[in-house]
């Protein structure tokens, strides 16, 4: 079995377990909010700080990789905008938009170390710093224009949420520590590593707990289009941009995998808050999560044929 599939099966096994835990009531639906909160507010920042601060970026095309990845999300935003003339209501369109540009970085983080090694894990962690604010600004803008929320938009609150996002702060702190050569070992590094180790398993379980198969029935044709944009068009865009910028090898594979990751549950939360089509978004997250198990290995094998040989 090739290494990507070998690494993916346990990851999707954990996601399936999360779904099973919620469905059976072993961990009830209302408890997952707290689990998610701890993961986003504390564990993931610890993981990102630990990974980025200790990564060795010498010899890695980090700058061109980041430019390509940022452009990739901007291009996906432009492609999504090209679909606005479709005869669909505003809230449904915001689901298409969010589905096209949001990515589930945590699936990639879980996959990165076993498949791409420490270099790939370091690059995957780095993606969060520029893309979390960029994607949030794009999605909030789309929802404020086409969403159906009757509540006035509190721009200051949204700006503060983005600026104080713990994932961004952790990336920036990690990059600063890396540049200054701080916290490579010692109590701070050990503490961040110890706490961060809990992040990905919890997030993967929470992704599974959030799957909603009944939402797959919501507007099937539009859902199919949104899924195709995420799992077919987005990885192609990231792959082409990588080639154009001269990104190669494991970095190109990580870049393509960024595009090929499933939709993020955060889009559902934003859709509910800002008048998007939350049910369609839930269907998109569920469908892309399931189908990414098939599409991710294919895209990684295209971008990194040498790596798939094991």
């Amino acid at each position: 079995m090739n290494p990507v599939v070998t690494a993916l099966i346990p990851i999707f096994g954990v996601i399936a377990l999360g779904w099973g835990l919620r469905r059976t009531g072993l961990v009830a639906t209302e408890l997952w909010g707290g689990i998610n909160r701890l993961s986003y507010q504390a564990l993931l920042p610890a993981l990102l700080f630990s990974t980025i601060s200790q990564a060795d970026y010498t010899g890695l095309p980090a700058a061109t990789f980041l430019i390509a990845v940022t452009l990739g999300f901007l291009v996906m935003g432009a492609i999504a905008l090209a679909f606005r003339p479709l005869p669909i209501d505003g809230p449904a369109y915001t689901s298409l938009f969010q589905g096209s540009v949001r990515w589930n970085g945590f699936v990639l983080l879980a996959l990165a170390a076993p498949v791409f090694g420490p270099e790939g894990a370091a690059l995957a962690a780095l993606v969060f710093a520029p893309t979390v604010p960029l994607i949030n600004v794009m999605c909030v803008a789309a929802l404020s224009v086409w969403g159906a929320s009757e509540r006035p938009l509190n721009r200051r609150l949204i700006l503060m949420r983005i600026v104080t996002n713990p994932l961004i702060l952790a990336c920036v702190a990690g990059a600063g520590a890396n540049a200054l050569g701080l916290f490579r070992d010692g109590p701070v590094a050990d503490t961040a590593a110890l706490a961060g180790r809990a992040a990905l398993p919890l997030i993967l379980l929470a992704i599974g707990a959030g799957l909603d198969f009944s939402a797959l029935k919501a507007r099937p044709r539009l859902l199919t289009l949104a899924v195709a944009l995420k799992l077919l068009v987005a990885p192609l865009v990231f792959y082409v941009l990588g080639r154009l910028f001269g990104v190669e090898g494991v970095a190109l594979a990580v870049l393509t995998a960024v595009g090929a990751t499933p939709g993020a549950a955060a889009s559902y939360v934003l859709a509910r808050e800002m008048g998007g089509d939350a049910r369609l978004t839930a269907g998109h997250v569920t469908a892309t999560t399931i189908l990414a198990a098939l599409s991710l290995p294919i895209w990684i094998s295209i971008a990194w044929p040498g790596g798939m040989a094991g």
């Binding site: 099966i9 346990p10 990851i11 096994g13 954990v14 377990l17 564990l43 879980a110 110890l194 706490a195 961060g196 180790r197 809990a198 992040a199 990905l200 398993p201 919890l202 993967l204 379980l205």
Partner: peptide, 12 residues
Amino acid sequence: RPLEIIASASIG
């Protein structure tokens, strides 16, 4: 492996 992944969260 899936059990080991979720088990790794336990200590922290």
